[in-house]
Every structure is written in structure tokens, then in C-alpha cells.
């Protein structure tokens, strides 16, 4: 069982969470060339090792998180709130849980 340290709720089994997707994907502006959209929608690095990904704490606080996880060992390196404003508030409050450490 993977256990994810949610910055809001503490460490929980991954069955409480829903996997989102590769968090390194950035969608381009709407008027970007077709090639940029093709890459963002369809192409992936598919890293074997540490990658950024989004998870939602679906059966908990329902917050979206950015998780740094090793896809070969399932080891979790860090967790933070996906929403930059929420992450900034957590960090500003001096809340260590904000980094998931």
C-alpha cells in the first residue's frame, strides 16, 4: 500500500486518493500552434523514476495535490497542495505539512 502524507489530513492509504495525471504537463495558450497542443494532450515522458503527478484526496479533504513519486519503487518524495495559492498559505503559516516532509 502506498501511503501519501496529505498536507491537510496527514498520512493516509492511497486508496483514499484518486490518481490524476502527469503533473509536468502544462497546457499551452488556446491559440498556440497545433503541434504544442498535440504534445500536451498526447505525448508523455513516461519517466521510470521520480516524477511529478497529481492526486486528489477524494475520500478525505478533496484537495488536489502534487505528489513527487518514484514510479519504479512507489516511494513518495514530497507532497504539496496543487493550488498555488493554497500552497503559499500553507508555506506562509510555517506548516511543515505543506511540504509533506
Amino acid at each position: 500500500m502506498i501511503r501519501i502524507p496529505c498536507p491537510f489530513c496527514g498520512e493516509r492509504d492511497h486508496s483514499e486518493f484518486a490518481y490524476g495525471k502527469d503533473a509536468s504537463v502544462q497546457y499551452p495558450p488556446l491559440d498556440a500552434p497545433l503541434e504544442d497542443w498535440h504534445e500536451a494532450v498526447f505525448l508523455r515522458d513516461n519517466i521510470r523514476g521520480v516524477q511529478l503527478e497529481t492526486w486528489q484526496h477524494l475520500h478525505g479533504c478533496r484537495q488536489w495535490l502534487v505528489v513527487e513519486r518514484d514510479t519504479a519503487t512507489h516511494h513518495i518524495h514530497s507532497v504539496r497542495a496543487a493550488h498555488p495559492g493554497v500552497a503559499a498559505v500553507l508555506a506562509g503559516a510555517g506548516n511543515d505539512a505543506g511540504s509533506g516532509k
Partner: peptide, 13 residues
């Protein structure tokens, strides 16, 4: 298992 993985072993859920 619903998340990306290169590990050839499963998980309990």
C-alpha cells in the same frame, strides 16, 4: 492499479 507504475508488483486495493 490506476496510477502510473513500472513496478511489476501489485497493490492491495
Amino acid at each position: 492499479d490506476w496510477y502510473k507504475s513500472y513496478a511489476q508488483r501489485g497493490n492491495l486495493p
